[in-house]
């Protein structure tokens, strides 16, 4: 072991603040640089391909349209994508890397913002991939079965679809920020996405007044219009998305951000 000259000292350099782009690039890298992180993101691509293959194998010939592919691929992606956002946030606490991260950038808001930006970038990339795999599936399906090629999705509907995915991802992100523990946040995500809508629909089936109220309370129900690929949303549907988004996403996110700013990192 040699004596080290690793820390020359006194020359004072002009120090520039760390730009947000650089923090974001590092946060993006952190999503891929562990085996678990890498395979989680890789599984988006893998499951998209599997879902497309499933459609070709099992869907009836007259259903081999682009919207069928896009809808089928949505299911695995909508489960995995929010996990990416959850783990990006919670790993700072559960793996305790926050001890380093938050001392290298002592403004937690900037780290959280960088994580949000990199999560949304991943979501958009995943959507581009989904559309590409869906298109390939559609071409391949038509070629294999000899059915006519049907492109039944407009650009607007694609944008709806991306918006819906980004909102799902942000729900995961919000839960990560609010709960800051991997397992807790993942469980909460499944409760919010799968259990709660079931309860809401049972309630709606049981009582008329709740049935009328459901679009204003149930965030999944309010957003369902984003994924149907058949018509554009009405003003009221947009209002439903905004209201449920404020209640289920914005308010808890603000509470979570306040907790993140104030709590001790150990």
């Amino acid at each position: 072991m040699t004596a080290v000259t690793a820390g020359a000292v006194p020359i004072r350099r002009a120090v520039h603040p760390v730009p947000l782009t650089r923090i974001t690039a590092v946060e993006l890298r952190k999503m891929f640089d562990t085996r678990s992180g890498f395979w989680l993101i890789a599984s988006i691509a893998i499951s998209a391909v599997l879902a497309a293959a499933g459609v070709i194998l099992f869907a009836a010939d007259d259903e081999l349209t682009y919207s069928t592919f896009a809808t089928a691929i949505r299911f695995p992606v909508v489960i995995i994508l929010p996990l990416v956002a959850i783990l990006a946030v919670t790993s700072e606490w559960s793996q305790r890397t926050g001890l380093t991260t938050f001392t290298m950038v002592p403004h937690r808001g900037r780290i959280i913002a960088a994580k949000a930006i990199s999560s949304v970038l991943i979501a958009i990339a995943a959507m581009a991939l989904t559309f590409a795999v869906g298109a390939l599936g559609n071409l391949l399906g038509a070629a294999v079965t000899g059915t006519p090629l049907v492109w039944d999705v407009t650009i607007t509907q694609c944008l709806y679809y991306v918006l819906g995915m980004v909102l799902s991802l942000l729900i995961g992100f919000m839960l990560g920020v609010l709960i800051r523990a991997s397992i807790g946040a993942v469980v909460a995500y499944f409760v919010l996405t799968f259990l709660l809508p079931t309860i809401f629909s049972l309630l709606a089936a049981g009582s008329q007044w709740f049935h009328d109220l459901q679009p204003w309370i149930d965030i999944q129900f309010a957003q369902s219009g984003l994924f149907v690929f058949d018509k554009s949303l009405t003003g009221e549907q947009w209002a439903n998305i905004v209201v449920t988004g404020i209640v289920w996403l914005v308010i808890p996110l603000l509470i979570g951000l306040r907790l993140v700013m104030r709590t001790e990192v150990k």
Binding site: V15, H16, P17, D33, R35, S91, Q95, R96, T97, L99
Partner: peptide, 28 residues
């Protein structure tokens, strides 16, 4: 500390050597 623009260039900090993601390599 919070006013340091790029704290890593001014203060080297080691609080807990075990507080690292177990799945990352040392070089990473």
């Amino acid at each position: 500390f919070a006013d340091l623009p790029n704290p890593g260039l001014e203060v080297g900090v080691l609080l807990d050597a075990s507080a690292q993601h177990a799945g990352r390599t040392g070089r990473e």
